[in-house]
Simulated assay, not measured.
Amino acid sequence: MVSRAGCLGVDFDTVCGYFLVLGFLSASKVGVLVRFLLLAPSVAFSNSGLLFSASSVVFSELCGHIDGSALAPQGVEALSKWEIKDAWVMTWILSSVEPHLVLNLKPYKTTTAIWNYLNTVYNQDNFARRFQLEYEMANFTQGSLSIEEYFSGFQTLWADYSDIVYANVPVAALSAVQAVHATSKRDQFLMKLRRDLEIARSNLMNCHPVPSLDACLSELLCEE
């Protein structure tokens, strides 16, 4: 079992927050990227003939390719190993950013160069990102989308928003906040359905108790 502690001596969620402050990575992709940095070294490097354990030391080294603290060495063999690691992290960043950004990154040949460019152009603090997500959530409706398409977009916005909000909630209060959010999330999902689903929505809202979001989705998929 790999420890959730990372290169900065903090837990997984805090490391995720380090990446989340940059708006070009969604919360779901941040989670994938950080898990990759934590879990992948023992697998991928062993396939390259470089056997490492997935530890905070390795994670620290990989993060160094992002923040520039892991400088390219002078020796041929050491440089070759450094380039493998740099290409590895670079590939995962490229696969994590939005597709339309990839072409802009082609001129940059190292992980640090790519990260610095993205940080300069797209950096947002958590307040700005939270405000943006709240605005998008307030204006997101089903419109011409199918139930599945609407639910998928709705879930993505809520997942990104929740990751930012929950990062500042004490552990003791987290379950209570999540319960309130679950109710609000379900109600907002139902409120923003198309008018032709008004009867189905009213039936769901008049149930005692009102079904969970997943149960509501199941009923609506049958109605569509």
Rank of each mutant, 00 (worst) to 15 (best):
F12T: 02
I114P: 06
C63L: 14
R130F: 13
V76M: 05
R186Q: 08
W158H: 15
L118A: 10
M191L: 14
A128Q: 13
M205R: 11
I84C: 09
A200C: 11
T112L: 05
E77Y: 01
S95L: 12
F19L: 11
D86Y: 01
S152D: 13
K185S: 06
C216I: 03
E77T: 06
V57L: 15
L193E: 05
R201E: 05
L103D: 15
P211V: 00
A78E: 15
A87T: 04
E98M: 09
L118D: 05
G49Q: 09
F24S: 10
C7W: 11
S3V: 04
M205K: 12
V10S: 09
I66A: 10
G153H: 07
A138E: 15
Q124V: 08
N203H: 03
T110H: 06
F12H: 14
L190E: 14
F131Q: 12
A5H: 05
L22W: 06
G75D: 07
A27F: 12
R186S: 11
D11H: 03
R129T: 12
F45E: 07
S26G: 07
I147T: 14
F189L: 13
C63D: 07
E219G: 08
L220W: 05
L101I: 08
Q178V: 08
A87F: 01
R195M: 02
L221Q: 14
N203Y: 02
L37Y: 08
C222S: 10
N123S: 10
S146I: 08
A128V: 15
A215S: 15
L118C: 15
T111W: 08
Q132L: 13
V169E: 01
S218P: 01
M137L: 15
F140K: 06
V2A: 12
S218N: 12
E224Q: 03
Q132F: 00
N126L: 14
Y122E: 07
